[in-house]
């Protein structure tokens, strides 16, 4: 097969160029780390973030505002649902697609939307979920982590948390719990190592930092080019 010989030839050229042995085994630059170390590091990060929780929330919010994200502090879960209901009514939305996640279900959004005759759809409830997501006016998701220093939402793809929710509708509302906020990338990757494992990060990890944007025409900033035009973050109370 041509593919195999291309592989051997490229690897051969590389090892000759580096004057090294080809396939010298998988490199372990830092040596394998024991899983107990991973656990300890993860615990340290969690407690450090807990310690400066209020600072992280403030930093996260100020970064979000800088990049055009609307932030809403929900005093109660019901006010979170009300906030989304208001967006839906204002935009005359017919359909809302939502993640099949506890944090979304927990705010009782479906009841409020039903009352207004707005469809509430999750991928568990709809076999044609993708088609629905294309037509939907709002996508509501939770997040898995949030980064304070850049205002970034981190979403891990899985059954129930379809990637389309935060991508296809013109409005994305993300519900964030305070204990999901960590300082930044270094914390995140360390936590992912322990809580998810490097062996399988899942089909997609998505970082979302602000609404979809472009500046391809005369460097004029335009939001909502392919992804959502509006990004709302609802911060729940712990």
């Amino acid at each position: 097969m041509a593919g195999t010989s291309a592989r051997e030839e490229i690897l051969g050229k590389i090892s000759r160029a580096l004057k090294s042995e080809a396939n010298s085994g998988p490199p372990r630059p830092n040596g394998p780390r024991a899983s107990s170390d991973e656990a300890r590091l993860a615990l340290e990060i969690r407690s450090r973030c807990e310690h400066k929780r209020q600072n992280l929330i403030e930093q996260f919010e100020s970064e979000l505002v800088k990049i055009g994200v609307r932030v809403y502090h929900a005093a109660t879960t019901d006010s979170a649902a009300e906030y989304i209901e208001q967006i839906a009514l204002k935009r005359v939305t017919k359909t809302v697609v939502a993640a099949d996640a506890e944090v979304v279900e927990g705010i009782g959004l479906q009841k409020r939307l039903d009352r207004n005759g707005i469809r509430y759809v999750t991928d568990a409830s709809d076999a044609e979920f993708r088609r629905t997501a294309i037509e939907a006016g709002i996508g509501v998701s939770g997040v898995d982590y949030a980064l304070a220093d850049t205002g970034t939402l981190v979403l891990l793809a899985r059954t129930g948390q379809a990637r389309s929710i935060s991508l296809l509708p013109p409005v994305h509302v993300a519900i964030v719990k305070p204990d999901q906020i960590v300082s930044g990338l270094d914390d995140l990757f360390q936590l992912l190592r322990f809580e998810k494992g490097v062996n399988d990060l899942g089909s997609a990890v998505t970082f979302i930092t602000g609404p979809s944007r472009t500046a391809d025409i005369e460097l004029t900033l335009v939001v909502g080019v392919h992804g959502p035009q509006e990004l709302h973050v609802i911060l729940l109370k712990n």
Binding site: L147, R158, V205, I208, T209
Partner: peptide
């Protein structure tokens, strides 16, 4: 590249969609 702290989207793609997922 663009003077952003982070680009709007960063996607980490590991293999194909997993069983039970609706997109990817």
């Amino acid at each position: 590249a663009s003077g952003q702290k982070m680009s709007s989207y960063v996607s980490f793609i590991s293999g194909a969609r997993r069983a039970g997922e609706t997109d990817g």
